[in-house]
Design a protein around this nucleic acid. Structure first.
Lengths: 348, 348
DNA sequence: AGCAACGCAGCAAGCGCTTTCTATACAGTC
DNA sequence: GACTGTATAGAAAGCGCTTGCTGCGTTGCT
């Protein structure tokens, strides 16, 4: 039925071992033999049996990329960059690896299950992207899994995710705290004193870090924060829309709204506009991430640019062992404040 | 080093065969024995060896999803929906399958390579999303691959992609032609007579179909199209921006710009605005797809909504054999015209 | 010319699992 | 009490590939 190595060997009049060596190219094979084998492979339209090969060699060419939300360009951009470095088809690398992205949907259980599935497949490497959930038991479970993966020879790297303690996974962390601080400092510098903050889901590290940065900036400026100024929600436009309405209800005198990310900011803009408020004349808005669409918002969004593609590419190279991990296994990737039209001097 | 089935068997004082049967649950095993085995699995923290299992059983639990651009929500939304139905961790389905998305970047070679890689892994199913490239040799190569995959027992389904002739792959096709026609009819109905069209890459089926719909509408209204009114570019905002500038240069009297998709439309809006033109007073703009951000554009985008998530979910179910394929293996999924603020009556 | 060294190919032993077939044990039946 | 039937567990034969080791023919050296 299906063509096997042995069939190719028979056709090329060599032993299976030789065919295997030609295919893997890590053993000297005479040029003429090689050619004969290659011809046979071609003629028989042979396709290597991945599982068999993985079993015998005790390694596979699978590389997993875990993302929280595949429909979100934040992850898509990172995943694409990682994948392009992993090799995969068309990547810069030589060997053909199957770089696959797994969508956890932000669910801790799915994250764990995917890790198990990848462990089961004896993945060559795993890259986890985006913020982690701040649940101690879950964090411990993930750490344990990562340790086990590493033990089994799987390279683990975290991209845009805080380091995992008790683990020697390489981590490329975004400086969410610093970015958040800078962003709010910018608004304060413009004269804002009453700033609403639309945070992400409570339990995520990213949420907490950005919020901490925001608060640090307020504190540094001697602004006392009103608890009513912070609303939590999901990382999407809808949440931004609703949260903004809520903020406006709580305190109509706010002059700025800082959003957890750009999508949320877009929702905030919509809500403000529908409430008859001009941006930035009446209320300034700021986002985070600088996704491609942010510059097209009207007015264009003041935000913090995260080098998603660069970080992803680097993570990919590290996962492939083509770049040295940063000293200590941890690197912080900084964002860059992008001041655009959505932020301005407050009225009055 | 690593725990194997035999280790578990030894610990549970049963044969490896029994352990395998407990794990696969398709053979009667006494409750007490089962429990003993399960306990051993737990105690040893055993993880099945995927490749070995795939080799022995001649099937794997991998399901591949091919997308053209993982950073584009158009694909992200579909992929997410497919994945959630595939089962994967947390999906509705029972068995745990590893649903993985592969990013072809729109490159025909990568598409082929990924298919080979999936074939090599003996994937259980493969879903190809998005438009295909209209290159005869490549189409033939893909068709051949798909046939081979199907022969090997892999279920193949196309989602948002035209049917593959000479293949019995199930196809859920978007009615790009109909949507394009309806969109342009809407603009014509508003009084537009000079409409620019920013098309996608020339060689893509999606591009051609949408453009055909546009032209059909023009023809039906007796509007003779000026070749200068069509510009081709990539499916991103940048292309939309540049193409719009080009269109304006070629014919400053255009009263409407129809874009290949929403991202392109966003770029078009930016270019128009920078050229001092108001939307829709001076120029109307229309997109396609109705991605989440489209409603947030200012003015919000008139576009054609494609039921991406629904189609993806259906494709996923079909791929898993949990839903009957449509009669004839081909179904057309229609879009819905969303009239919003970016289109209006032309000036004058 | 003689011996070591080398290059290249084959043998064969697994890799860890699934599954067919067989064996055992018990319960039910006449 | 011998016999058949049913339920459950085990033995063993691979699945298709990789790789350490062996073997042989040839080249290089003295």
């Amino acid at each position: 039925m299906t063509v096997t190595l042995a069939d190719v060997a028979a056709r090329a009049q060599v032993s299976p071992a030789t065919v295997s060596r030609v295919l893997n190219g890590n053993y000297p094979v005479a040029a003429t033999t090689r050619e004969r084998v290659l011809r046979a492979v071609d003629e028989l339209d042979y396709v290597l049996n991945g599982p068999a090969s993985a079993l015998a060699a005790a390694t596979s060419d699978l590389v997993g990329i875990l993302v929280n939300d595949i429909a979100d360009p934040f992850f898509g951009i990172m995943a694409g960059a990682i994948q392009s470095e992993i090799g995969g088809p068309g990547g810069r690398a030589g060997g053909e690896r199957l770089a696959v992205v797994c969508n956890t949907g932000g669910s801790p259980e799915r994250e764990l299950t995917y890790l198990t599935l990848l462990q089961r497949q004896r993945a060559a490497a795993v890259v986890l992207t985006g913020g982690a959930v701040e649940d101690a038991p879950h964090a411990a479970a993930v750490a344990a899994k990562l340790r086990k993966l590493a033990d089994a020879g799987t390279r683990v790297v975290l991209c845009g995710r805080p380091p995992a303690p008790e683990t020697d996974a390489v981590a490329l962390t975004f400086d969410n705290r610093g970015g958040g601080k800078e962003l709010t400092e910018h608004l304060i510098g413009l004269g804002h004193r009453r700033l609403g903050y639309i945070a992400g889901p409570e339990e995520r590290t990213t949420t907490r870090h950005r919020l901490e940065g925001h608060r640090a900036a307020l504190a540094a400026a001697g602004i006392e924060e009103d608890p009513r100024w912070t609303v939590h929600g999901r990382y999407d436009r809808r949440a931004g829309y609703e949260a903004t309405l809520e903020l406006l209800r709580r305190d109509p005198t706010l002059t700025a709204v800082v959003a957890a990310n750009d999508s949320v900011a877009l929702g905030a803009c919509a809500a403000l506009r529908e409430s008859g408020l001009r941006i930035p004349e009446d209320v300034s808005v700021a986002g985070f991430d600088d996704l491609p669409f942010s510059i097209d918002a009207v007015p264009s969004l003041t935000t913090v640019r995260l080098p998603l593609a660069e970080a992803g590419a680097r993570a990919g190279r590290i996962a492939m062992g083509r770049e040295e991990p940063p000293p200590g296994g941890i690197a912080t990737v900084r964002g860059e404040l992008m001041v655009r039209g959505s932020s301005g001097v407050p009225r009055g």
